[in-house]
Computed example of a mutant assay.
Amino acid sequence: MSSRRRAVPVWRRGWVPGGLALLAGLAVAGHRRVPDLGIHLGSLWESVLPWSGLVVPVVLLCAVLRRSPVAACAAVVPAVVWAALFGPLFGPPLGGGGGAPGAGSGSQLTVVTHNVGADNPDPAGTARALLVAHPDLVALEEVTDAALPAYQGALDGELAYRVRIGTVALWSRYPVTDARRLTIDPGWSRSLRAEVRGPGGPLAVYVAHLASVRLTFDGFTAGHRDRNIGALVRALDEEPLRKVLLLGDLNAAAGDRALAPLTSRLAPAERGFGFTWPAALPLARIDHILTRGLPATAAWTLPATGSDHRPAAARVRA
Rank of each mutant, 00 (worst) to 15 (best):
R162A: 12
E238I: 00
G38F: 13
L182V: 08
G14T: 02
F217E: 14
L266G: 09
A296K: 01
E239G: 07
Y151N: 01
P93M: 10
A269W: 04
T216S: 15
G98L: 12
S105V: 14
P9F: 12
E142M: 09
H288F: 08
W82I: 03
A27H: 00
A160D: 13
C73P: 00
L281R: 13
D237Y: 06
V176K: 00
H134T: 11
L41R: 06
A160N: 06
A124D: 10
Y161Q: 10
G200T: 11
R12L: 15
P9D: 13
G96V: 03
S52V: 05
A279F: 08
D119A: 15
G106L: 07
V116F: 08
V81E: 01
T291S: 11
L155D: 03
Y151T: 01
E142K: 05
V77I: 12
V64T: 08
P92G: 08
A29N: 07
P78L: 04
A253L: 06
V244N: 09
G198V: 06
A71G: 07
V64E: 09
E195S: 12
T167D: 15
N228Q: 14
P88A: 05
P92Q: 13
E270M: 11
P282L: 01
T291E: 13
W277C: 01
P282S: 07
C62W: 10
V244L: 10
R66P: 00
L290I: 04
S68H: 08
N120Y: 02
P123D: 05
A154Q: 01
D287M: 04
Y151M: 07
I286V: 15
L20F: 11
A71K: 02
P175D: 09
H209I: 04
H288V: 06
A29T: 03
R257N: 08
L37P: 07
A24Y: 03
F273R: 04
V56W: 02
R13L: 14
R257H: 11
P57W: 00
V59R: 01
L44G: 10
L236I: 12
P135F: 06
P123K: 02
P92V: 09
V58W: 03
L41E: 02
L89E: 06
R33S: 14
L26F: 15
P261Q: 06
L22I: 11
T113K: 04
P282Y: 04
P282I: 01
W51K: 07
A24T: 13
A127P: 01
H40M: 10
A252N: 06
L281F: 14
T297F: 05
A24I: 03
L148C: 07
H224C: 00
P17D: 04
W300C: 05
S52Q: 07
A313F: 04
A79M: 14
F220L: 12
A24F: 07
L26H: 11
